[in-house]
Amino acid sequence: MNIFRLAGDMTHLASVLVLLLKIHTIKSCAGISLKTQELFAIVFLTRYLDLFTNFISIYNTIMKLIFLGSSFSIVWYIRRHRVVRRSYDKDQDTFRHFFLMWPCLILAIFINEKFTLKEVMWTFSIYLEAIAILPQLVMLQRTRNIDNLTGQYIFLLGAYRAFYILNWIYRYFTEEHYVHWITWVAGVIQTLLYGDFFYYYFQSWKNNVKLELPA
C-alpha cells in the first residue's frame, strides 16, 4: 500500500466520522442527503460481497466492515432516529436516486471484466459510487447555506477521491502495467463532480467567509 492510497482511505474514514459526529452529537442531519447515503450503503453492500470469501488483509476487512456498518447506521439514523429524522430536509432532497441505479446496472452487465454475479455487482458498485454524490450536490445547491461539518464532510469525500487518483498514477508506474479502464474512468468522473464544490470551498477558506454556493 502506498501513501496516496492510505491518505485516500484515511480521508474517506474521516469523512464518515465527521458525518457520524454531526449526527450523533448534534443530533442533526440538516443539509445531508438521505438519497446519497442510501446509494453509498448500496455501493458498499454490492462491492464487498467477497468480504468473507476473499481475504486480502486485516486492514481491508476491518475497513470494509467500518464502511458497511457506518453507511447503514447513517441511513438508519436519518430514517428512524426519533430526534435526528426531524432535522432531515426532505423537501430539499427530491432527487430520484433509484433511477440512477438502472443505467449503472445495465452498464455493469455490458461493460465488466468478467461476466459473473460477483464481478458484475462489483462493477455496478464502481459505477454507482461515481454518481452517488449527485443528490447531495443538488441538495447543497438548493440550500446554499452549508454548515461547517457538512462542508468538511463533502470536502473530505472529494479529497478521498483525489488521493485515489494519485494512488492509481503511482500504481501505474510502480506495479505491472495493467490497465484498469473501468475504475479509472468511473473514478475520474466521480472526482470531477467535486470540482465545482472544491472551488467554492477553497474560495471561502481563502477569504475566511462562510461557505455559500451561488444560486
Binding site: D50, I56, N60, K64, F67, W122, Y164, Y178, V179
Partner: peptide, 10 residues
C-alpha cells in the same frame, strides 16, 4: 488486463 487486481482497494 488482469481481472480483479484492484480488488485490494476499498
Amino acid at each position: 488486463p488482469k481481472t480483479g487486481s484492484f480488488k485490494d482497494e476499498l
